[in-house]
Amino acid sequence: MANNLALSVKDLKTFFYTNKRCNKAVNGVSFDIKKGKTLGIVGESGCGKSVTASTIMQLLPKLSRIEEGSVTYYSDNGEIRIDQLERDGPEMRAIRGEEIAMIFQDPMTALNPVYTVGYQIEESLKYHTDLNPAERKARVIELLADMGIPLPEKRATEYPHNYSGGMRQRAMIAMAMSCNPKVLIADEPTTALDVTIQAQIFNLMTKLKTENDTAIMLITHDMGVIAELADEVAVMYMGNIVEAGTVDDVLRRPQHPYTRALLDSIPVLGRGKDQDIKSIRGATPDPYERPIGCQFAPRCDFATEACNVMPDEEFLSDTHRVSCARYKEIFENA
């Protein structure tokens, strides 16, 4: 079964310890990413999307740690339990950049200002390939050209401050793709960019996915982006995945009240300005004082006593799963 999987996360818990208080930022998350497919992860700010991504790359800050669960990477030479590797040890370093690469939210700060873009891309090649310096230079130029950057020979010798935001993000993607990783983690790659550039970046990612069979984990809070790009989607709320499935499952037949509220809160193009956009009432709870049961219960219109215990995950089909005590009743009423 595992041979079409690229990465699998099981019951992952990552906690932060600050001032002797514990923030269960990721509290039991499971998902698989398949080769050549895109898994979208959506959720409000602070729900643990970035922490999940950092956990997979072992890029967590010092005051946090993997509490439980597993992260398994299916390499060509067998399974690797990433959660059991030493944080910055040689095995982990061999995976970073070469097997699993990451693109960050803000291209303005993610590149080192004192080195040329070409140098920073070349650095990855130096540590993960046997290419000689001349071959590396040629490969950098080829990568920049692939990303649609004009005059790549000249651009490679320029510094990040000579690049526009969109071009920096392309350079970041070039860097991430330089060693043909099997998994690409994109943490809100276009949040800092305008809409036309956003479309170009997504076209680029789709092209890479089909050409290189890269598995993509796409983090976003934009349901529209999910509908466009993802094959599967996981909806996160306060450190849990509340609903997951194929894009059809989740967007067409949403089961969890949170997923529905999320879908109701986005305007639909063409429906005019009188459309009924509902914002979700209340605010996300204090991450240090989380509700005991269903995390969404305090804001949920359908919450009852049954919601005071953490709901089990139930499968509606092979692909579609939901964690809600009352989804059956609510669904009938709707």
Binding site: L59, D88, M92, R93, R96, A101, F104, T109, N112, P113
Partner: peptide, 15 residues
């Protein structure tokens, strides 16, 4: 503490 350090680490560079 800047973000490019995280980028550098995500490339698998030695410490």
């Amino acid at each position: 503490s800047r973000e490019f350090i995280r980028t550098a680490r995500s490339k698998g560079l030695p410490e």
